[in-house]
Design a binder for these strands. Structure first.
Lengths: 109, 109
DNA sequence: CCCATCTATTTAGTGTTGCTAGGTACCAGT
DNA sequence: ACTGGTACCTAGCAACACTAAATAGATGGG
């Protein structure tokens, strides 16, 4: 994809990851793979790990270290209460944006 | 609004302004006022002017200086062919994003 | 045994973008 | 002269995603 996606992802990627975690706990490698699967073909691995550390430091997720059979131990992240609240706020903000843009798009303004 | 909007606007605000200009030529002050009207209550004026200069340098818009009765001359921006192509690409990228997020939101994933 | 490969995470440095917080300038009304 | 509305510009900052590495454990092939 292009530079447009990269810029649009700013602020949105965080919501995406939180949304994923709201369904089930997951670790970084898993999330990256899932995103690639969903068509986010060139989200850098480093980006996800950095993002996870960020939301951890903000207290939106809890972390647990879990041994893996296939490699180094995994850091499994799960959404906590604060994260859930933040995610709700994210969806409200997102709805606001999509509504404005839909109006702009439809009336070819 | 909050920091969430600020981050989400990155990359999107540019599309919004181009979409506005696709309807009719406009100048910076006008665009800022319109955005505030639409609920983007705290988009800084400086942001819009900087953005306009950016898209001008990228060759997405044409500019014409028009005298105003009420103040300094206006710089009226209008979308050109290249800008129109870029805007279409923006809408495609935006659709991609909204589809993924809608899926995430609906299945409360 | 060594190397490639997959799993899994980390980090330093870069570019783009929106915000802060000013400033300049023109004009009308008081 | 002063205020307020119109109209634009700029320097410095913070946040975020990307680049491009490095580290490290496990497994299988040559």
């Amino acid at each position: 994809m292009g530079k447009q996606v990269t810029e649009m992802l700013k602020g949105v990627l965080e919501g995406i990851v939180l949304a994923i975690l709201s369904g089930r706990p997951a670790h970084g490698y898993e999330i990256t793979a899932w995103l690639r699967d969903q068509g986010f073909s060139d989200i850098a691995e480093g980006t996800i790990y950095a993002l996870l550390i960020r939301i951890e430091q903000r207290g939106l997720v809890d972390v647990e270290k879990v041994p893996s059979e296939k490699g180094p131990p995994r850091k499994v992240y799960s959404l906590n209460a604060q994260g859930r609240a933040y995610l709700e706020e994210f969806w409200r903000t997102w709805s606001f944006l999509t509504e404005r843009l839909e109006q702009l798009h439809e009336r070819g303004n």
